[in-house]
């Protein structure tokens, strides 16, 4: 879980004296070093956001340059763990974009009914909020029994949170509102038990879910899927890496399978645009047609 920023560290930029060209060199060297020493490949991440995150970690470690951060993480694997969390955690919410889940229920669920067995991949599932959201929709539509959900993330720490299914109690009001707007059919509180400051979600929601580590940058496809969710993960990648991941998704979808992206992500800048049709004018739900 990402730690809330204090106001003064939140700007996450270099000191004013910093030379932008030199900064880029230092960032590229650090990412190259991390890749060669630890095998984590962040070299094709979107520059503007990785830069913010690197400065956030630099400041949190009490350092003043990216080169100092490079020395620290290369020599101290505990510092690398902390950086890995910063670089790989994405922040999400249950039923983020309720309109999306409503359209999923209305437009995609009827298509899924035609399959005897449904395989869903949540790629970059982070702490699992959207995995549980999907499972709730499928449960209510009577499809969860014949569905297997593969929920993957690069980061094992967030996967453990996802497996545990405990989310902050203080988000439940927002999530309940999202659930209702998404067309939820029951009372949202049926799905969790409040305990201390956490909401423990019913383990039966993930009875057909496999959580496992998978790296979108370096790992290959591992099955054929009816639906792939990858929402607000690709925004952290540059165009080139986005295209590589789109190849992976295209190869991993069955014909007429569904690709679900974040509301501001688009196939417009990818070479795969002609291979999909849009299922909805607004929500980013695509169907593989060739």
């Amino acid at each position: 879980m990402a730690v809330p920023l204090t106001p003064d560290e939140a700007l996450d930029g270099p000191p004013l004296s910093y030379n932008p060209e030199l900064e880029r060199i230092e960032i590229e060297l650090l990412l190259e070093g991390v890749f060669r020493h630890y095998g984590f490949d962040f070299r094709s991440y979107a520059y503007a956001s990785i830069r913010r995150r690197l400065w956030k970690r630099t400041e949190a470690e009490g350092l003043s340059s990216i080169s100092e951060l490079q020395a620290l993480v290369l020599h101290d694997s505990a510092a690398m763990e902390r950086l890995l969390l910063d670089l790989s955690v994405s922040v999400t919410a249950m039923f983020r974009d309720p309109g999306f889940y409503q359209v999923f229920r209305e437009e995609v669920v009827p298509l899924l009914r035609t399959y005897p067995f449904i395989r869903i991949w949540h790629a970059g599932c982070s702490s699992g909020e959207e995995v549980y959201s999907t499972a709730i929709v499928l449960e209510e539509e009577g499809l969860l029994e014949r569905t297997r959900i593969y929920a993957t993330d690069i980061n094992d720490a967030v996967l453990q949170q996802a497996r545990a299914g405990i989310f902050p109690l203080n988000r439940m009001q927002e999530y309940t509102e999202n659930y209702i707007r998404a067309g939820g059919k029951r009372s949202f509180s049926e799905y969790y038990t409040a305990k201390y400051d956490g909401a423990l979600f019913s383990p039966s929601l993930t009875r057909n879910t496999v959580f496992s580590q998978h790296n979108l940058v370096t790992d290959r496809s591992f099955s054929e899927f009816t639906v792939i969710f990858c929402r607000n993960v690709l925004i952290y990648f540059d165009r080139d890496l986005q295209n590589r991941v789109h190849t992976l998704f295209y190869d991993s979808l069955v014909m007429l399978g569904i690709l679900a992206l974040g509301s501001k992500e688009s196939l417009r800048f990818s070479q795969y645009e002609p291979c999909y049709e849009k299922l909805h004018p607004r929500e980013k739900l695509y169907r593989k047609i060739r």
Binding site: L5, L11, A46, Y47, A48
Partner: peptide, 15 residues
């Protein structure tokens, strides 16, 4: 976020 010539979005924590 703004990069040279294009935009990038992020869902990092609110500031």
């Amino acid at each position: 976020l703004i990069e040279d010539g294009h935009f990038a979005l992020s869902t990092d924590e609110p500031v």
